[in-house]
Amino acid sequence: MTKFLLAVHVIAAIVAIGPVTVAASMFPPAARRSLGAPDDADALATARLLHRICRVYAVVGVVVPVFGFATASNMGVLGDTWLIVSIVLTALAAGVLALLVLPRQSAVLETAEEGGEMEGTPGDGATDGRAATVRLAMFTGIFNLLWATVTVLMIIRPGSTTGA
């Protein structure tokens, strides 16, 4: 049963998290093109598609920690440090995606659809679309770095006694 759960966990991570990391990374440049050429319907359609991929696969990605917990429980490693660190980093990655990446993608898309200037967040003052997409790219990079770290921890499992 453990091998089955592990296989589903890994496949879910590849199928669900992979598209989010790629689409989220592609979104800022696509959004910049869209903001730079308000009459370019293809650029806006590309940005919309990438945002939809991020939203849908973020929801599908919930399967990854569910099967991860089931696998860890079967393996008896729920208390291991490497797993606890992975859980915390996964929660951080989910938070970055849900609270920083997806809302900013939506805001950039709204601006591109209206053909107007980006408004800054409260306290930031007004900022242009390029600055907003650069900031979005930074948050996306943090999201991707967190997932890469979780992946490395899942492979190396430092201190694990379950074998390599």
Score class of each variant (00 low, 15 high):
135 R>C: 06
61 G>T: 04
107 A>Y: 04
119 E>I: 09
125 G>Q: 01
141 G>E: 05
65 P>K: 01
26 M>F: 05
68 G>H: 04
105 Q>E: 14
20 V>I: 10
121 T>L: 14
138 M>A: 15
152 V>H: 07
133 T>R: 05
72 A>P: 00
32 R>S: 13
131 A>H: 12
42 D>F: 12
86 S>F: 00
2 T>P: 00
141 G>L: 00
85 V>T: 06
66 V>C: 03
139 F>Y: 13
26 M>V: 08
162 T>F: 04
76 G>N: 01
97 L>Q: 09
57 Y>S: 10
148 A>R: 03
60 V>W: 02
107 A>F: 05
124 D>W: 00
74 N>A: 11
13 A>G: 15
46 T>Y: 09
122 P>V: 08
123 G>E: 02
38 P>M: 01
84 I>G: 01
18 G>L: 03
156 I>S: 13
161 T>V: 10
37 A>Q: 15
3 K>W: 10
98 A>H: 11
157 R>A: 11
91 A>N: 06
102 L>S: 02
142 I>T: 06
18 G>D: 04
31 A>R: 00
18 G>Q: 04
85 V>N: 04
137 A>R: 08
163 G>W: 08
104 R>K: 11
41 A>L: 09
155 I>P: 10
164 A>G: 10
105 Q>T: 08
135 R>I: 07
94 A>V: 11
73 S>Q: 02
94 A>K: 03
17 I>T: 10
124 D>F: 01
128 D>M: 08
140 T>N: 11
159 G>P: 06
51 H>Q: 14
53 I>P: 13
39 D>K: 13
157 R>D: 08
106 S>W: 07
49 L>I: 08
5 L>Q: 04
144 N>C: 11
140 T>L: 04
13 A>Q: 05
140 T>A: 08
62 V>I: 15
110 E>N: 14
23 A>H: 02
138 M>L: 15
39 D>L: 12
132 A>C: 07
75 M>K: 07
93 A>G: 13
137 A>L: 11
62 V>Q: 08
68 G>D: 05
20 V>Y: 00
129 G>H: 09
133 T>G: 06
17 I>Y: 02
123 G>A: 08
144 N>F: 00
122 P>I: 06
159 G>D: 03
9 H>W: 03
120 G>Y: 03
109 L>P: 00
8 V>N: 05
155 I>W: 12
2 T>E: 14
70 A>E: 00
2 T>F: 08
124 D>A: 15
75 M>Q: 05
90 T>M: 01
33 R>A: 15
19 P>A: 07
82 W>T: 11
88 V>F: 01
152 V>N: 12
104 R>V: 02
18 G>Y: 04
105 Q>C: 07
15 V>I: 13
41 A>F: 11
136 L>E: 10
101 V>T: 01
153 L>Y: 12
70 A>G: 05
162 T>H: 06
158 P>W: 07
44 L>G: 04
